[in-house]
């Protein structure tokens, strides 16, 4: 497969969706680059599934535009979805049919090539041996895998997976992670909606955080972690002496102690870790570790979403919308 990595797989502009008086999505500007694992994070009810349904043309947005694989949705829906595979909410099937027959139902809508690909996709998700069994006998994890197999039938450039790790055991989650990375390695984009921060952190390159229908942040995962300020983590020999020294330095704005015993120092923006190291060593403090401190995704997620819960930030007139710091991994 040959994919131009500079292409955008999906994008929205000022996307809004209302259900009666309730605003489910507000002014969403999302950019999903081609060739990345893209995590769509948000608490339950944040609007993730509604956003996915708008992307796929399953529901009409109230305002704004959607583009998928360079085609407007819903205007050019057929062309837009020709190379997109999706599982929205839990994967559902005809329980009285086998896994293979369920794939035949969908491939009949796609192409003869899709039908020919059924054995390959079943093998890829590890369901070849159970493909002839009725889906009614499948576990939730097997249904998730069959859902992914269904997505792969049209050799998609973009896969949209809504909560794909629900029901998977730890081994299944690891297999899923490997599968996603393999798909990305082939140049495909995989958009994963989830509230499982740890898995998104392990799987995705780019993350968008959505809360109460508002896109609060979209950035490369590394940029998101670093966005917590100029912090360094230091392990020292003499903690008391080190804190005394640090307390006297004007450009060290704060010092916190982690459970591990490391000191996390917040420095002024123009200060450097090298200067901190030099100061500590000159004060006879042994430094055994000095590294940039990055916030975990969970920490950043909670920072960004809990701030929204403050009344002053929930106003419709001033939604918090994250700048696109960096959308390439």
């Amino acid at each position: 497969m040959n994919v131009n990595s500079s292409e955008v797989a999906a994008s929205t502009h000022n996307l809004g969706k209302r259900f009666g008086e309730r605003s489910a999505l507000r002014d969403i500007d999302l950019v999903v680059p081609q060739g990345v694992a893209f995590g769509l994070l948000g608490p339950n009810g944040a609007g993730k599934t509604t956003l996915i349904r708008c992307l796929l043309g399953l529901t009409r947005p109230t305002s704004g535009t959607v583009e998928l694989m360079g085609h407007a949705v819903p205007g050019e829906r057929a062309a837009a979805l020709a190379r997109v595979g999706a599982v929205v909410e839990e994967p559902r099937f005809h329980d009285h049919l086998s896994g293979r027959e369920n794939l035949r139902i969908v491939s009949a809508l796609l192409s003869d090539a899709a039908t020919a690909r059924i054995p390959e996709v079943l093998h890829r998700v590890g369901l070849s041996e159970r493909a002839g069994d009725r889906v009614a006998s499948y576990s939730l994890g097997m249904r998730q895998r069959l859902g992914i197999a269904r997505c792969l039938l049209n050799d998609p450039l973009l896969l949209i997976l809504d909560e794909p790790m629900n029901g998977l055991d730890p081994a299944g989650i690891q297999e899923f992670r490997i599968l996603v990375r393999a798909l990305v390695g082939e140049g495909r984009s995989v958009l994963i909606s989830s509230h499982l921060l740890d898995e998104i952190e392990k799987t995705c390159d780019v993350v968008a955080i959505i809360d109460r229908g508002v896109l609060v942040r979209q950035a490369a995962l590394s940029a998101l972690r670093q966005a917590s300020g100029n912090q360094v983590r230091v392990m020292v020999g003499d903690m008391v002496l080190a804190r005394a020294v640090l307390g006297r330095i004007a450009w060290v704005q704060s010092v916190a102690v982690e459970d591990s015993g490391a000191l996390v120092c917040t420095l002024a923006t123009d200060a450097t870790a090298a200067a901190l190291n030099r100061t500590l060593v000159q004060a006879k403090v042994d430094v055994s570790l000095l590294e940039p401190a990055s916030a975990s995704l969970e920490q950043r997620f909670l920072d960004l979403t809990t701030r929204l819960q403050e009344p002053s930030n929930t106003s419709e007139s001033a939604p918090r919308r994250g700048a696109h710091e960096e959308v390439r991994a």
Partner: peptide, 17 residues
């Protein structure tokens, strides 16, 4: 049957008319 089984959404998501 497509709607009741929940498969309709997957069929609609193929872009087929």
């Amino acid at each position: 049957q497509d709607v009741e089984s929940g498969v309709f959404r997957s069929l609609a998501a193929t872009g087929q008319s």
